[in-house]
Amino acid sequence: MIEVDHLSKSYGKGHAVNDISFTVNKGEILGFLGPNGAGKTTTMRIITGYLPATSGTVRVAGFDVAEQSLEVRKRIGYLPETPPLYPEMAVSDYLQFIARIKGVATADVGRRTDYAMEATGLTQRKDDLIKRLSRGYKQRVGIAQAIVHDPDVVILDEPTNGLDPNQIIEVRNLINTLAGEHTIILSTHILPEVEETCQRVVIINQGQIVAMDTPKNLAQQRTHSARTHLLIKGEAEAVQAALTSIEGVTNVEVSEQAELLAATVESQTETDLRSQIAACVIGSGFELYELRTETLSLEDVFRQLTT
């Protein structure tokens, strides 16, 4: 649905985006991840036709963004970083206006407006002036304007920015309900968002793609060893010896923590040693207080890749 091919954008001397390529399939949610200033917004603006690229091409639904801009714009719903609202307008008037300029047929304007308000939970507030809405509701209006013309592609630039935790969950659920019907690109620097909503992640740093995969694969690939953390009551040396004797264990570290011992057991990634470790601890006559495995989170991957 979206093909970005060797896209670059430079301002003056610096590159905001430097030779990036990726594709997004129909119905997919792609997470665009990167620190502030990495080039996320610039890339999105080029895809929406707001900014021209310095070099490279972008095609949306087969149309070239630079050559057939109007065709592309018809097919894209876009929520910029700050929702583009007219505060003095009522919600339904605003959405009707958007529907008209986005090319919705006059006969369908009312129906599409109702749909967008229904989908974003705004039906109750349809006659309220936008300036009287809370931040969360304004964000919903922003999303409603991005889907009112039933676009093939929805591009959301930090859709949960500045919302409180409850609102973030609401918006995230809303995005999940949009998936399937629409192809979605969303940018964020909040990692759980990506883990929960996106099928694929592009991590971008200093204008370049540093990783591109599913959130799960990204986390797994970066993990070279698995760690298991234990809290045990017993004698340090005996514990150390017992744990080291387990087959598959590569390293054991033991330290004292209050009345107990904290042990970290490292092993090969592929093998799950939890039951063996538990059996060993109990079998050696120690008391087991806690046992948990550590997997590398997307957050760790992100930090590794972007710093």
Partner: peptide, 10 residues
């Protein structure tokens, strides 16, 4: 920021 919206409309 509504200019950006107008300029990305068809």
């Amino acid at each position: 920021g509504t200019m950006e919206m107008l300029m990305t409309s068809p």
